[in-house]
Design a protein around this nucleic acid. Structure first.
Lengths: 178, 178
DNA sequence: GCTTCCATGTAAGTAGTTACATGATTGC
DNA sequence: GCAATCATGTAACTACTTACATGGAAGC
């Protein structure tokens, strides 16, 4: 069983967001806007676009002005695929994708938005509790820190990061209510 | 030119930190302590340990008590490799490895610690400025947010995350001075 | 028209994942 | 001793990276 693919959905998301675009434009969107979460080499992108054309998820737009560039647009099949992907439930396995999915939600009123964030917050709260438990186990005595300072650092960092995330997400949820 | 390998160094780091260990113990360390930053499947770990044995970076400790488990320890060659890896300069390319490297620094007084954090903070500050610039470009007017709410969200999240990281790291640097 | 870029394409190699397999050990 | 578990091993497949290649476009 192959591992779940992500790249095709990101391509679909970009094409859906930007409308018909050349491969180069998609590539730039990767590099400029979502390189925090996802990167791709052009040598992976171009063949993927070809494959997705064969699959009917994108189509090539005839392009007279420039014989070299290829313009792609998302098809109705592709739109359905994208929509289904966005609505897959957030799990521990795929939680890292939430930021990426958020990026493709354009409307503040989108119904899936609240659910995605709530599910994600739940997971991060669980992780936070787990990390806090680890901290208590490992570093409740001051002298336990001395010989494991690096471990102490990354554990405090992880706790800080999760705390900050949860606070941010709760702020967003509050904002959505107004 | 192959891409830089990370797995062998993490294995070396774990063996250096924990002393002679079985493959399973190394695997557990991955899953329990650094799964935030790095994961590995056992099917990748065991062959790697064999390969590193051939390379002389780890050695097999004779084990009479259990014919099944294999105990490995880091060799002097492996220790030198690990030390060199930890001291490689932090760059934009490998900045994500800093947390991982920190984990393997055991002593608060370790000379490389300050330098690693300072270099990393510098990169994160640059990234923060870049993100703030993007925000100004894209969302200085309130109505620009409405139709790109997902993008707005992940950009504010990224800014928040970098701000939080820089604050945390500066706190650590302060702490190191006392 | 010549050169320099640039968008796209291709190939080879490494990394990582899932699934399956094996033989020792442990619990009863 | 038998069953179940567990540490290790192997195989097949996909993802990703680097390097190299090509032919049109654009600048002069």
């Amino acid at each position: 069983m192959p591992r779940p693919r992500i790249l095709p959905f990101i391509i679909l998301g970009v094409l859906n967001k930007r409308g018909a675009s050349t491969g180069k434009i998609v590539l730039d969107e990767f590099q400029n806007e979502i390189s925090e979460f996802w990167t791709v080499a052009h040598s992976q992108l171009y063949p993927e676009l070809q494959k997705m054309t064969d699959e009917g998820r994108v189509s090539i737009v005839p392009n007279q002005t420039n014989a070299k560039t290829v313009v792609y647009e998302i098809t109705s099949i592709g739109k359905a695929d994208l929509e289904a992907w966005l609505q897959e439930p957030v799990t521990e396995q795929n939680s890292a994708l939430t930021s990426l999915k958020l990026y493709f939600v354009q409307e503040r009123q989108a119904p899936e938005l609240r659910a995605m964030i709530i599910a994600d917050v739940k997971l991060h709260v669980e992780k936070l509790h787990h990390l806090q438990g680890r901290f208590t186990d490992l570093f409740s005595e001051a002298d336990q820190i001395a010989g494991n300072y690096g471990h102490y650092l990354i554990l405090t960092r992880a706790i800080e990061r999760e705390t900050n995330y949860v606070a941010w997400a709760n702020g967003v949820l509050n904002d959505l209510d107004n």
